[in-house]
Computed example of a mutant assay.
Amino acid sequence: MENRSVLFGFFEDCWKNGTVLTVEMRKAVEKGRITQAEYDEITAKERGKRTRIKNREGNGMQEMTREQLQEQLQIEIYKSISLQEELNQKNKERAEYKALYTFAEKKREELQEQLNAAHSANEGHSEPVPVTE
């Protein structure tokens, strides 16, 4: 038996029953959940069609078996994890930008203080005083 990614079976099943989109499959490759070869293998197969079964009242609700509920839960957990990872990445980038902004702001304040000191020292002199960095 070949070495497969841990989530290979999950994505293969989702593809077969039509509960995962191609874009989600690509994202799984980008995130390292499955390999490109596994993606190619899975997506080469026919994708299943999701069907909605109307109940007696005809309101579009579907009675689901325990297995179907567990499968839907797995899908939602995976989506939740993916969204959390994206949020964590955005927060990390935000923190980096904030640190860079703080550094630049402090540097600007230091240079402004040097400029003010130079102006104050220069009030009694006719020659300009160079600003040191």
Rank of each mutant, 00 (worst) to 15 (best):
V29H: 11
E113Q: 08
L21F: 13
E113P: 00
I42S: 09
Q112D: 00
E110M: 01
Q68E: 02
A117Y: 04
L7A: 04
C14P: 04
Y78A: 07
R47C: 06
T132I: 15
N116T: 10
R47S: 04
H119E: 10
L21V: 11
R47Q: 11
V6M: 15
Q84S: 09
E41V: 13
S120A: 06
A117N: 05
R108K: 15
A37R: 14
V6A: 05
E30C: 04
R108G: 05
E12G: 02
E71H: 13
P130I: 09
Q84N: 11
T43E: 06
E133K: 03
P128S: 07
E105F: 03
R4Y: 15
E41Y: 03
F11A: 01
I53S: 05
F103D: 03
T35K: 01
K16T: 02
E57W: 10
A37S: 08
R66E: 12
T51K: 02
N59V: 03
T132P: 14
L100R: 02
T19E: 09
G18W: 12
Q89N: 10
Q72P: 14
G18Q: 05
V6Q: 14
Q36E: 05
E24G: 13
E30K: 00
Q74V: 11
Q62A: 11
V131M: 09
F8N: 03
K27N: 15
N88E: 15
K45C: 05
E24H: 13
T19V: 14
Q84H: 15
E113H: 07
K98H: 10
L69H: 11
K16E: 14
I42P: 03
F10L: 14
N3H: 01
K79S: 08
Q89G: 02
E96C: 01
I75H: 15
D40S: 06
E38L: 04
E85S: 14
K31H: 10
T65E: 08
N88Y: 12
K107P: 00
D13W: 07
K106L: 00
I42F: 02
G58S: 06
E67A: 02
V129G: 14
R94E: 07
L111E: 05
L115Q: 06
L111C: 09
E127N: 05
E2G: 07
I34V: 06
E93S: 15
Q62D: 11
D40C: 02
K45F: 03
S120I: 11
P128I: 06
E76H: 08
R4N: 06
E113Y: 02
Q74L: 10
T51C: 07
R50Y: 10
V6K: 12
Q72C: 03
F8I: 10
T102F: 02
L21H: 09
A37E: 04
L115S: 00
M61S: 15
K54W: 06
T102D: 02
A37T: 04
E71I: 04
K92R: 14
L21T: 14
S82Y: 01
Q36C: 07
R26L: 12
H125K: 13
G18S: 11
K27H: 10
G9R: 07
Y101C: 12
G58H: 04
D40L: 11
T22W: 12
E113I: 04
E63W: 10
R47K: 12
E71D: 01
R26A: 06
N55S: 08
I77A: 04
Q112N: 10
Q89H: 08
K54D: 15
R47T: 09
E71P: 07
T43Q: 09
E57P: 13
K16Q: 12
Q70R: 07
Y39L: 02
E2N: 06
